[in-house]
Amino acid sequence: MSTREKVGWGVGGLVIIVYCLFPVAWIVSLSFKSSDDIANGQFLPTVFSSENYQQILVGDAAGLFLPALVNSFGICLIATAISCLLSMFAAYAIARLDFPGKRIILSTALAVAIFPVISIVTPLFNLWRQIGLYNTWPGLIIPYLSLTLPISIWTLSAFFREIPWEMEQAAQVDGATPWQAFRKVIVPLAAPGVFTTAIIAFFLAWNDFVYGISLTSTEAARPVPAALGLFSGASQFESPNGPIAAAAVIVTIPVIVLVLLFQRRIVAGLTNGAVKG
């Protein structure tokens, strides 16, 4: 690349980064503004105040926010774990076995993924009320699986397909049962794929709003995005922008931590050296 090209790419990248990060920066700055400073018309707060954070962590809104945080973590982690486990088996079968209906499964998964959530939430609401799943953790975990499973199956089966089949056959010749071959050879090799899938699944569940607001009514199961919608200002005439911003910052932190933690594992390349090259 010539210097000119480098500069061009650099400037282009910078523009995109600024464009993407600006709203985030705005929210961070908003979360530090005190309630009478919110409409100051500037990017930075006049004085940095932790008023909003206090409000959601120990103040009025804590009763709404903290249980929601626990719910969100619990529900999303469980949904992610289940979906990883199930999709691992499903994706393995899809990648390795030739069975009738394979394409149907894959296209159904895709169809489910693009099916608008809003159109099933009403029937689900009625059904959940009837069978007692309304406002419970399982009542959210199940619909979250419908969000996370399709994409997990797709990503994982792509990963499994990358693993040379000979690996597994070698293991079988070496004396492994099919299950041992899967557990000792395929799973370790697919680990980066599983991490990637887990993170994507976790985000999908973490970000959900529609199910969260419709299928819950109390702190028993309400997740953070739904709780944010229920924040109220100090008075009727005041909008709760500050606390919402603070809560938004807090819920973004686990996402960032996750990505930083697993970034290196996501970068694949683990199959290097498996085959001659």
């Binding site: 000979e166 070698a170 293991a171 010749v173 070496d174 049962t177 050879v185 498996a274 085959v275 001659k276």
Partner: peptide, 17 residues
């Protein structure tokens, strides 16, 4: 295969990375 007690060297070696 595991009950036949044979060992095989694959064309691409198939080592466990």
């Amino acid at each position: 295969p595991r009950d036949r007690n044979l060992s095989m060297v694959f064309q691409n070696y198939a080592l466990y990375p």
